[in-house]
Simulated scan of single mutants.
Amino acid sequence: MLLCHGFTGSPQSLRPWGEYLAAAGLTVSLPRLPGHGTTWQEMSHTRWEDWYAELDKALARLRADCAEVFAMGLSLGGCLALRLAEVHGQAIRGVVVVNPSVANDVPLLRLAPLLRLVVSSVPGVAGDIKKEGVSELGYTRTPVKAAATLPRLWALTQADLGKITQPVLVFHSPQDHVVKPTSVRILRERLTRGNLDVVELRDSYHVATLDNDAEQIFARSLEFIDTNASVPLQGS
């Protein structure tokens, strides 16, 4: 299983999910994307191509050891997981995404290509969690230069959604303060082969993998793997 964390986040946001899948006997890879988990200043020297390349390398390593690979991701990590499925076709057996970001629906980000010329960072988006006492390890500032590269990734991913024939499971929080419903609407409109299932998370915000509905995400994603793998999981 290849897990992809979100923009300005870190593997910490998906670690419980990865540990759950590993405990079920699955091989799990959860790479840290370049520029993440260090400082936002370092991240400002990276772009979406760097993040995707890191996942591409992780996928190659998994394919060398595993018969099948599922791609999973949170937020921007969900977009990258979908992009992997578009590019690699059936090398990705299925996709699970949590509050995926595939659209440029934030007004400030529309200005990023110009904004990066005058400011280096804006307030961060990490930590949108409903559950009390839980926090996400993410940047308190968003590097504008890195954010300015996102529209190209979103455009490419949207343009190629029709290439995805693999099953796709989407977890969506109606109370998401980071990603608007536009992304899920686009997925509903473009994935019309009967391969899309959307599950609403009524008790979580954006970082649902650390929130009140986390156990539902973990259990249903494992069920999704068991259903769509060519060989059922041991003990199922």
Rank of each mutant, 00 (worst) to 15 (best):
M1G: 01
L2D: 04
L3D: 05
H5I: 00
G6F: 07
S10A: 14
P11L: 07
Q12I: 01
R15F: 05
P16S: 06
W17T: 04
G18V: 01
A22G: 11
A23N: 14
A24R: 09
G25A: 04
T27P: 00
S29L: 08
W40R: 10
W48K: 13
K57P: 00
V69G: 04
A71F: 07
M72G: 14
L76A: 09
L76F: 13
L80I: 12
L84W: 13
A85E: 05
Q90V: 06
N99P: 10
P100G: 06
S101N: 15
N104V: 13
N104W: 00
L111N: 01
L115S: 05
S121T: 09
K131N: 01
E136K: 09
E136A: 13
P143K: 12
A146S: 15
A148F: 09
A148K: 06
A155I: 00
L156Q: 15
T157I: 09
Q158C: 10
K163H: 07
P167H: 12
F171W: 07
S173L: 03
Q175H: 15
D176G: 08
S183R: 09
V184M: 05
R185S: 14
I186E: 03
N195F: 03
N195C: 03
V198F: 12
V198P: 06
Y205M: 08
Y205I: 00
V207C: 02
V207E: 11
A208L: 08
A208C: 03
A208R: 06
L210R: 04
D211I: 05
D213P: 09
V231P: 01
Q234M: 12
G235C: 10
S236K: 07
